[in-house]
């Protein structure tokens, strides 16, 4: 599970156990297709289970994945 593709001056990325990447300070987050998304909040949750319906953002779907 590689780290999310993000840009920003002071980016902090943290993997939440059995959850998403928590990203602070990113100005741009790129999804799997390389499409750029601009965060609208100071901290964002980026999908780590690859099952979100709202990529690149976490939508809580990981909770439904057995064993994740």
């Amino acid at each position: 599970m590689s780290a999310p593709d993000v840009s920003g001056d002071r980016v902090e990325v943290r993997a939440c156990p059995r959850g998403p990447w928590l990203v602070r300070g990113a100005t741009v987050v790129r999804d799997a297709a390389g499409v750029e998304h601009v965060p609208t909040r100071p901290v964002v949750a980026v999908c780590r289970c690859r099952k979100t319906s709202r990529g690149p953002w976490c939508d809580g779907t990981h909770k439904s994945i057995p064993g994740y």
Partner: peptide, 14 residues
Amino acid sequence: HVEADAVHEQVAAR
């Protein structure tokens, strides 16, 4: 709130 609370739950709990 789908996206906001996916963030907030991590911030609030951790």
